[in-house]
Structure formats: structure tokens, C-alpha cells
Amino acid sequence: MSPGRLLYRGGIIAAYVLMLAPVAALVAISFFRDEIVSFPPSGFTLHWYANGFARSEFMSGFIVSAKVAVLACLIGVPAGTAAALGIARSNLPFKGAFTTFMLSPLIVPGIVAGTALYLTFLMAQNRLDMDITGTLGGLVAAHVLLAIPWTVRVVTASLQGLDGAVEEAAANLGARPWQVFWRVTLPMLRPGIVAAVMFSFIQSFENLELTLLLVGPGMSTLPIEMINYLEFRMDPTLAAVATVQVVLIAALMLITDRFVKLSRVV
């Protein structure tokens, strides 16, 4: 093999090892018997999974993360889909600027946007005399900022591959505008919307930076509970919790892939 070829193959292997090894290591450690992680383990056990479920901070973090992700999707995906349709199918001026604006939450660093939201919530709290930071509503509001740009991006991409003539044909054949939308446009957009839901859900579920300042006692997300735990120790219990998250996300990806080929949306 020529040195160039060797470099090419070696590079591919190195890249995939670098990407996948940490996940593989965590899954392996979650079955190790010893509480203090060491290689090789003295035996294997499922005990740490029970331990992870029994720890209230992980359990409540998991539930909060799931709730926030579902609610953020319910608000952000319809709003984002509508915006993508509006941008693509209307004669709006400054279309490029609108798209950039909708995608801007992806460009502003999460920690910056999170800080700005935190200050805004505190100000609103004082004026309105109600809690916003540390509430489910506050977290959902923040995570809508993740769902909108991901939806606009994915749905816009799938709109570009659609033939507008089909909608015109339906209209010519006497379908009313809402019938065109419900019976033609929406079914054609389904793969894009499914992908948008998956990306929005996962981006919300695993988000750390945007969320850091907005959590409160009893209202904290799984990634934040995990990083708090990790600052003290890394043990098989954490690995078990992480493995549950990994399996959940893998399952979501495989289900989504049945509706829409993920290799075509990314």
C-alpha cells in the first residue's frame, strides 16, 4: 500500500475511533462491577442501572428533559414549518435576511443566548412578580429557540426538493387552499417534519449551554444533573445513566430513519 493510501485509511480509522470510543467506553463501564472504575473490571453487573433509576436527581432530570423537549417541539416545529413555508412560497422581500434571522439562534453561542435570556427572565420576574427561571415554562421558552432554527433548516431543505406544480395542479382541479395544504403540501413535507421533530427533540434533550442558568431546584435537566455529578466523580452509575440516554437517542434515530432516510436530510 502506498503511503498516501495508508494515511487515508489510517485517518478514517482514527476519526471513527475518536468519535465512537467515548460512547463505547461508557457503555462498557456501565456493566463493570467495581464502583471505582478500573480496567480490566473484576466482573460485570446490572446493578448500576437500578442505582441510576433510584437516584432521584437523574430520574427527575430525565423527566424534566423529556417534558421540555416535547413541549419545545410542539411549539417550535409548527412555528418553524410555517416560517419555512412562508419564506419558500411567498413573494416576501428580503427572504435571505428572514432565513438568516430564523437561523440566528444557531449562530449565537448557547452560553451567550442563555445568559441574555436569564437576565431577561429576571427582569420580567421583577416586573410581573412571578417565577420564570427555574420553571418548566422558562425552560420550554428557551428550548423553542433550538426547535425553530433546526425546523426551518430541515424543512427548507426538504421544500427545495418539492415540485410546486403538484400543488398548482391540485388547485386547478378545484381543491381549496386548505385542502391543497392538508392533502398535498403536508404529506409531501412529512419526511422533513419528522426529521425536524427528531433534531429538535434531541437538540433540546441534550442541551447544556443554553439551559445552564435557567434551571432551578427540582427543575433541572438530565445533562445538567450529569455534569453536576461528573464534577465530583465518574463512576458506573453515571455511565449507566448515560447509556440509557445513548440507547434512547439511537432508537429515535432508527425510528426516524424508517420515515425519512437520515442520509438525505443531513
Partner: peptide
Amino acid sequence: SKLTILTLFPLLVGGVVRSAGYIALLGNE
């Protein structure tokens, strides 16, 4: 398509989980 999913997968697993994995790989033990 399988390889695309495999490439996308670590991305979607999340930064905290993967950082935990690097601790497990790079630590003294």
C-alpha cells in the same frame, strides 16, 4: 446510509455524555 447514521449518532448523543466518555478513556485509571 448506515455509515451516515453512525457518523450522526455520536453527534446526537450530546456533549456531556461524550465528555464523560473521554474521562473514562483518558484518566489515570
